[in-house]
Every structure is written in structure tokens, then in C-alpha cells.
Design a binder for these strands. Structure first.
Lengths: 223, 223, 223, 223
DNA sequence: GATGAATGAGATTTCATTCAT
DNA sequence: GATGAATGAAATCTCATTCAT
């Protein structure tokens, strides 16, 4: 009951999950969907149990409380990004290509993981109360990776020297995330489904353009 | 009870509010604070009544339901932005200055209205369910203003011709808003209080820089 | 909600209780009966609400939790003994009469307050966990009274000098209380209803006999 | 499953217990501790299973229900007193010594068996509901023994003739038991740990003093 | 218009017990 | 005989809403 991470039983290290592990995974998946949709307060344990096809009692057996389950959902989903991250930030010869690739990976991760986008948004409103039980460990893991990646970008002379990396990261993140997190509101103004491949590529192109060029016609600057 | 907007009674058009109007205003202010903090689900009618120093029954008298009160809170706060907006988007001779000024106004509006930032974020997660009862009217009012403003920007040759205005608006909004909406998470990485005047100016400078220049050193582009 | 003691409202200092006070009193009376019967764990809030003819919600409104209600029940009932106590330990000329009178009062208090006997017994098993939230204040009030009473007893030469007052009190209490607290088990061995007046007098006589042939200096007996 | 007393299997009448018997004994011991501490309602089957290092299912296998297990715990522990009793009530030449010895044995049995003290107290509050499933048989066994013992006391002229034996037994029991059952409450008023050998002897001395200055015919004392 | 008391429906959590292996 | 997973019923507690004055 102490250690909530799911261990594979000896018998079946590969592939198959024990009955208990399978149940826990079902609960986590159902809870991810519902918490992402309705937030911690708005979600009902009954609903999660029904969606997981399991008796409500088992949720308390495995996760001790609704709140705790929520934290585990965060852990599971935040970890996914970390996993993608290690892949996305691989070095390469062309620094522009390297950064474009990282942004693309991140963007499509968000496109493919609506629950993640929403969980992150709930947590922003929760003042990261629950995420803070999970993030420190993940950041410890991710930080060296990210640091190397950024240093490489600077060394290669990609970033203008007067650019504050902190602000840059906040901004890139904002450009990617907001397309998804505000979708409900923006969709009416869009020519077609914002999740259509062409629209996604369009947004990504805009982001790249925006990042690499700014909005002003070159040669016309007079700031 | 149909029309929820507050009309001044004939007797006191100027300045003073009747007892009833005063109560309604107190409720709306208290509700703004609490809904902004905890969202619709997370807020308690009892808490709002206590904060408004009014009997809970009165909330139902004036607003009929918690949900309805929430919608009125949205209306009140969204209207504030509209009011600022008319001022921020005034034309001028220098198109760069005009747009910088608009961004600055918006940025400092957000800086000064944490409740607005949060209400907008809750609504994004609510799939704009409640905001949709309020936004159409406001957008009808705001749209011509915004359209004129953007056309002026394009006519003056400020925006690169291949720039999609929709994306541009989404991006500018994202760059401004995310600094505030993710503050809780970012603060630990910041050198000082993110709301300190110097930090706000720094962020604004970054946004302008970002918008007008992109991240790459000019002359080095090879995309 | 802070102060759980029941204050009479200004309007009706004498006799009548306000609606709210009446409800609280009904809850406390019902809870006394049920907690005395079944203990904290064994009692159901639903049952108490039904017995008090009130909505369950009000119990939480007035008392915040089942546990807290239990503590207030203890306070109410323990206070009764304190009230009796001030009357029972009045001084007099004949020390033997004085002490007999005190014992008689205590004994008949127990006889008439089965709930008290049981509440005290539950608390003994609860390791006085809840009583400890109540007793300190009551003991502070009762102590000087008791101290005077005992000193008077000693000054008058009633108690043998080698008698440990602490043990004496424990013993007198045990002799009185056990008749009631073990009644269920003893009744089968008794000739008639243990609560019948004659049986009560018989027990009291035994206790006096037992005590006075124990605590009095030999040669001074005049019972 | 009808007869809940534990029979030794033929194979191992002496010393060793079979696996099954060992399990049952472990359950009974764990259950004794926990039921004594928390009572029937307050104890959790899970907790007992954990304490007995056994699967919960086995408790149902051997004892059918929690309630039934509780009864068996009572049987086991009440039997202990009966066992001691036969030893404690041995006749002797000096009737005063005989009775003092019996009281001492009983007193130290209680001192050494906190679980017994508590189980007896829970049962008093349960109105002997569960004990009644166990006591009749034990009393049948114990009664002749006790009767002989008391008759011997009377024949030898130890008890004053006007003494009601029933009351006397209740009183002696109360004097011994209350020291332990009210310990939690009394301890603060005691000079040192109430279970310290010296304190126990002090209490026993008080009891004897109390009893013998009470029950013995005057003029015959020779303590 | 204003208030304090009350309520019913439903939320989270708990627990003795049983199934399947 | 033994085990881990599962369950249904019921407990405590919560909250938006309404009654009575």
C-alpha cells in the first residue's frame, strides 16, 4: 500500500499484467479520462469506478483516496511527456533542425494527448498543488537533458545572445499549448476542424515562422 | 429576474447605489474572488454569502442559482476587458507604436486582473460552457473595433503578408496570458517576484522582442 | 460555530429556548441516549438524527462531527454530576452524617442516570480520549470543593490517619459504580430487580457498612 | 465448525500444534489484543488478519464471522480466570490467609491480564450479550468451587453473620477491578506508574485493609 | 428585502464478507 | 488449507436549495 508505482510480478515480466496490475491500470486510464475532462472536484469516484469496470472499493484499496488517485494520474501522464522528451531533444548537426524537431515533437505530443493538455491546465488553476507532489522528481530527471539541449542551442549560435532562455521556453510552450487549451473557444473562428492534420501543420508552421522570424517583414524593422 | 444586468434606479442614476444594488454588487465582487480562486465546482455558496456579508438566501433571490451567479461574474469581468479594449486599440500614426501599445495595455490588464486570468482559464476547461452565454454579445460589440484595428495594421504594412491574423492573435494572447496563468509553476525558476514591476517590464520586452524579431540573429537565417 | 455551549438568546433568558437551541438540545438528548447505549463507534448518526426528529445535516451544522457531538454529550452529562456534587458535599455538624449523605447522593445520582454510568464506562475503555477534552475544566471547578470536603473529614477525625485518600476515593467510587455498571451480569443472581428501591437501599447499606467498618478509627464507631 | 473449542489432533497430543491449530491460535491471540483494545465494533477484521500474519479468508474459515471470533476470544480469556481460580481458592488452615490469598491471586491475575480487564469491561457495556454465550458453562464449572470456598469462610466464622455474600463478592471484585479499568483516568493523580510493583502492593494492602476492617467480626481481628 | 433553520439528494469513504484459483 | 482480488451495503459527511417568519 506504501509504494504506489506498479511493479510487474516476477512471473510475467514481459507483456502481461497480473490481475491486480491490470485493475490498477484500468482505474488509472479511466481516471485520466475523467479527471482530464472534469477536474478533481468535478469528477465522481462512482463514475471512475464505472468507467474502469471495477468496484469503487478497489479504488480506495489501491489508491487510498480520490486525491491520491488524482496525483497518480498526474504522475502517469506527466511521465509520458518526459519519455517523449528524451527522444525529442536528441542532438544533430543542424541546430535549426534540432530545435524545429523538438518543437514539432512537443506540439504533436500535445495534439495527441488532450488529457495531458487538460490535466496541466487544471493544475495551473490548482496552483500546482497536486503536481507539486510529482514534478520535483520528474524535473530532477529532465533538467540535465534540457540543460544540455539548450546549451547546445546557444553554443551553435542559434539563439540571439540577448535572449532570456527562461522567457523563451515559456513562450514556446505558450505558443504550442494555447492552440489546444483554448480550442473550444477558437474553433468557431477556424475554417475547419482545428485538429485536422492540415490545420495542425498550419499552426506548427506559424509557430516556427513566428519563432524564427517574428512578425515584421525583414528589412522593414524600425523599432 | 429575466434581465440580469444591473440597472440604476431612476432615483439615483449618479453615484449612489440603492441598498439592493449595493447587495448585488457585493455578491458579485465576493463571487468573483471565490469563483476565480476555486472555480464553479470548487466554490461554496455559503462561502460566497459569508464573504459578501449577506444572507445566502439573497444570492438566490438575486441570481436564482449558483450557476447563474457564475455567468454574471463572467459577464462582469469579461466586460472589463472590453472596456479596456476600446481604449487600447486607438489608432495612431506609427503602426508599430500602435500595436505595441495595444499589447502593453492588454498585458497590464492581465497583470492587474488576476481574477480575469483565472476565470478565463476555468472557462477554457469548462469548454466555454458558461462563457458562451456571455461572449457572443461582447464579441459582437468588440469585433468591428478589432477588425478595424487589424486592417489598419495590415494596410500600414506592419504584418508580413503571409501572416495568418488568426494565428497571430492566438499567439500574442498566449504570450501574454501564459506568463500569468502558469505563474505558480514558473515562479520557482524566476529570479524575483514575477509580479514585480521590473519583471513585468522584462516579460513585456521579451514579448515585443519575440514578436518583432523572432529568436534568430538576423543575417544568420538559413531556414 | 466556535462556541458550542448553548447560550440563551436575549429575548428569552428564562425558560424558553430559541428554535435553534431547542434543536441542539434535542440532538444532545437523543445522542446521550444512543451513545450511552452503543458507544461512539456503535452509534449511527442517522439513528441520532431520527431520534432527535431532525435532519442529519443539522447535526453537522451544530456539532461539526460525530466525534465532536460525542464530546458535547460527555460535557453535558459530566456537568450534571458536578452540579449534584456541589449539593452533595455540603458541610454539617456530624461528620459521619456528612459523608454518608455524600455517598448516598452519589449513589442515587448513578441510580438515576444510567447514561452517565455507561458514558463513563465507555470512556474508561476509550482511555478517556474524549473525556480528556472535557474533564480538565470540570476538575478545576470541582477540585477545591472536593478538597475542602475531604479536609473537613480528616480534621473531624473521621478517617483513620493511615488511610490513603486517593485509594479511598477510588474504592468508594468502585463500590457505588460497579453495582450499576455490572448490573446486566449480576441481575440473574439477585432476588429481585436490582433497581427496585429496596434493593438499592440494601446495596447502599452494604456500602456504608463496608466503608464505615473500614475507614473509621476503631473505638469511635457510633453508626 | 460446530464445536469451536480447539482439539489437539491425535498425532500430536503433546506439545506441538498442527499447522491449522497454530493458525487458529495465532488468530485468537491477535484477536484478543485487538478486541481488548478496541472492542467488537471498533476492531477491523483486516487488522486482526494482519496482526495474525494470516489471510483474512482463514478467519472466516475457522471462525465463520467476526462476532463468532469475538465469542471465542471471550471463551479463551474467561477460561484463563477459571484456571487461576481453581488454584487461588485452595483451602488452608488459617481462614484469613485463605481469603487474602484468593484476593491476591485475583488481583495479580487482573494486573497481568489487561486484555481480560478490558474484555470484561466491553462485555459489561454490551450487556453481556456475547459473554452470555460463554459464561453459563464456565459458571457451572466454577460455582461449586466458589460455593465451597465461601461456605468454608462462613463456617470458620470469618465473615460477620449479617454480611450478604453477594454484595461482598461484588464489592471485592469492584475494589480489585476498578484500579485497573479506570487506570487511564487515575494515573495522573498517582505518584508513580500505577503498575509499578510497589503501587500494586499498596493498592492490595488498601483493599485488604478495607475489607478486613469491614468484613470481620469486631473483636476477632488478628490481622 | 432579509434572515436563520432546515432539508434531500448525493458525495466520499469504510467494512464485513465472498469469489476464483 | 491458503490466498489476493473483489463486492455490496452502509456509514459519515457535504452542499445547493427552500421554508417559515
Amino acid at each position: 500500500m506504501k509504494d504506489k508505482t506498479i511493479h510487474l510480478s516476477n512471473a510475467e515480466k514481459v507483456g502481461e499484467l497480473s490481475r491486480s496490475e491490470e485493475s490498477q491500470r484500468r482505474i488509472l486510464l479511466a481516471a485520466t479520462t475523467i479527471f482530464a475532462q472534469k477536474g478533481l472536484e468535478g469528477s465522481r469516484v462512482d463514475e471512475i469506478a464505472a468507467a474502469a469496470h471495477i468496484n469503487k472499493r478497489m479504488i480506495y484499496h489501491y489508491f487510498e483516496s480520490k486525491e491520491n488517485l488524482y496525483v497518480e494520474v498526474l504522475r502517469l501522464n506527466y511521465t509520458k511527456l518526459y519519455t517523449i522528451g528524451s527522444w525529442a531533444m536528441q542532438p544533430g548537426t543542424d541546430p535549426v533542425k534540432v530545435i524545429k524537431r523538438a518543437i514539432r515533437e512537443y506540439f504533436y505530443f500535445l495534439a495527441g494527448h488532450d488529457e495531458f493538455v487538460r490535466l496541466v491546465s487544471w493544475e495551473a488553476l490548482n496552483e500546482e498543488k497536486y503536481a507539486n507532489r510529482v514534478l520535483p522528481q520528474l524535473l530532477d530527471l529532465a533538467e540535465p537533458m534540457l540543460r544540455d539541449f539548450l546549451q547546445e542551442g546557444q553554443r551553435s549560435g542559434l539563439f540571439r545572445t540577448n535572449l532570456d532562455i527562461r522567457h523563451l521556453l515559456v513562450s514556446i510552450n505558450a505558443l504550442c499549448l494555447s492552440y489546444f487549451s483554448r480550442r473550444e473557444m477558437l474553433q468557431p473562428f477556424w475554417p475547419e476542424d482545428m485538429m485536422a492534420p492540415s490545420m495542425l501543420e498550419e499552426r506548427l508552421a506559424h509557430i516556427e515562422d513566428f519563432i524564427f522570424n517574428g512578425i515584421i517583414k525583414h528589412g522593414e524593422e524600425k523599432i
